[in-house]
Every structure is written in structure tokens, then in C-alpha cells.
């Protein structure tokens, strides 16, 4: 790991001051991706701004029709929350399946979403549940947030502060985990929301994306059999040593069916 300057600001304003005019600074959430990346010298930030001392960034808040989760809330905290599991069970299932216990104790929802790793779980939840990404500057709709592999709509000085999930009528998540890392080879969140059915895929493409053919089929008939015979085009999907694009295309359909079943469809 290369040297850097470490900061642990106590407020968002202070974090913002450190970031401003410092193009090579990086925000540090739980560090479960950033620190390994730095250890391999694949990243060389000049400054790390550790957000862990900003109390307002952690916690789970329930309102009438939504749950808002602070950016620094860990996967373990989301997985253990009775408020989350009783309202959006699919989100609990997703959080409890990320990495291993120690990764879930450190890794944060904000870090995961801001990183837009193509194989991370949370992007499928944000997009599938039609969440809103809240920053220190604005609110960003899930459909506008993930823009590419490790790319999002966040500006260079913008700080993701929370994510607001509207309560779905029903939702389910299923993933085919890489057996070593537990990253999603393919993962699918299916949700019936106030504005129709949404199907979001992670692990298969450059970033999380929706599948409109599946959404139409499930709108007409919310059951796994509605996806019978539906094929996913492999041409834009990821291929690596773990799975070919064609295999991922197959897995997307299988995981979508399992997610529908998990949602009670």
C-alpha cells in the first residue's frame, strides 16, 4: 500500500472541506473493497476521508412507507434489523448473504452502492426496489444512479449519505454466489412496487440493470412460470474465469425465477 494522509472528520462539513480541491482524495466507508485494492496498489489516493465518526451517517429509520438506511450502516446491522426484515425481508436476505461475517461487520451499504461493483449485491436492491440515493447535495433516483462499471452519477466531491427504500408490496432476492468470494455471479431482485413490477440484475452486466421483458411478463402474471421460455441476450454480459456470458444469461433467468418464488409469486 502506498502512503496517504488519513482523516477522520466528525462532521459532513469537515469531510467536505477536506475533499474540496483535493482530486485524489477518496472516501472510506468500511474499506472492504478500497483497502484490498490499495494493498494491491491498484489505487493510490492522496487522502482517505474515513466517514466512521460522523454519527448521522449510521442507522436505520422507518417512516410510514419507507425505510432509510444511513450510508455507514453495516451489512450486519441491516441483516440483524427486525425493522428491515419485517418490512423488506428480501433486503435482509441480501444483506445477510454478502461476503462473510467479518466483511458484513465492516462493509457498509453506502460504500457498496457508491462503488458500483458489477458483482456487488446492494445495487440490485437499490434498482429493484426503486430506492432513492440521498447525498449531501441532492436525491438521485435509482434508475439514474448506476452509470457503468464502478461508475455512478455521484460527483467527485459528493457524499452519499443514505438510501431510502420505499416498501414494496412484495419482493425477493436470489443470487448464485461465487463459492469463494460470495460475490454474485448473477443476482436478481424482483419487486412488486406501487409503480409496477421491477426486475434488477447484478453480477451479469457492467453495472446493475433492469430487464423490461421480465417486468412485463411478471406484471401480467407474478409467478416463476411467467418467465418460462424467456431468454436473456448474452452479448452484453460479463465473461470471466468464473462464468461465460452465456452461462450468466442462463443464471439470470434461473435467479429471477427463484427471486419470484422467494417473493411468494
Amino acid at each position: 500500500m502506498y502512503e496517504f494522509n488519513y482523516h477522520r472528520p466528525a462532521s459532513l462539513d469537515e469531510a467536505k472541506r477536506i475533499l474540496s480541491g483535493n482530486d485524489e482524495a477518496k472516501l472510506l466507508g468500511g474499506g472492504m473493497t478500497l483497502l484490498p485494492t490499495m494493498k494491491m496498489r491498484l489505487a493510490q489516493p492522496s487522502d482517505l476521508v474515513d466517514l466512521s465518526a460522523i454519527a448521522s451517517l449510521s442507522g436505520i429509520e422507518v417512516a410510514g412507507d419507507s425505510i432509510t438506511i444511513g450510508a455507514m450502516t453495516t451489512h450486519a446491522q441491516v441483516a440483524a434489523s427486525a425493522e428491515v426484515s419485517s418490512r423488506i425481508a428480501a433486503l435482509s436476505v441480501l444483506a445477510s448473504g454478502i461476503g462473510d461475517a467479518q466483511v458484513r461487520n465492516r462493509g457498509t451499504i453506502g460504500g457498496s452502492v457508491a462503488n458500483s461493483d458489477p458483482a456487488a449485491d446492494y445495487p440490485a436492491a437499490v434498482l429493484g426496489l426503486n430506492a432513492t440515493v440521498i447525498t449531501d447535495e441532492r436525491e438521485i433516483a435509482a434508475d439514474d444512479f448506476f452509470t457503468g462499471m464502478f461508475e455512478t452519477a455521484l460527483g467527485p466531491q459528493e457524499i452519499l449519505t443514505a438510501i431510502r427504500f420505499p416498501l414494496p408490496k412484495r419482493a425477493g432476492y436470489a443470487k448464485f454466489p461465487n463459492p469463494a468470494s460470495r460475490y454474485a455471479v448473477a443476482g436478481v431482485m424482483v419487486a412488486e412496487t406501487g409503480n409496477g413490477v421491477r426486475v434488477a440484475v447484478t453480477g451479469a452486466g457492467a453495472n446493475a440493470y433492469r430487464v423490461s421483458e421480465m417486468e412485463s411478463a411478471l406484471s401480467a402474471n407474478f409467478s416463476a412460470s411467467a418467465l418460462d421460455g424467456l431468454a436473456v441476450d448474452a452479448s452484453e454480459l460479463n465473461g470471466d474465469l468464473h462464468a461465460s456470458p452465456e452461462y450468466r444469461a442462463h443464471l439470470v433467468v434461473v435467479m429471477a425465477k427463484r427471486a419470484v418464488a422467494a417473493a411468494g409469486g
Partner: peptide
């Protein structure tokens, strides 16, 4: 109070 992997945490944290 919780288990972590100490190879993936900075001493400063």
C-alpha cells in the same frame, strides 16, 4: 465487540 479481519483494517481506524 464484533469480529473483523485485522489485515483489512488500518491501525488508524
Amino acid at each position: 465487540g464484533v469480529s473483523v479481519k485485522s489485515c483489512t483494517m488500518l491501525a488508524l481506524q
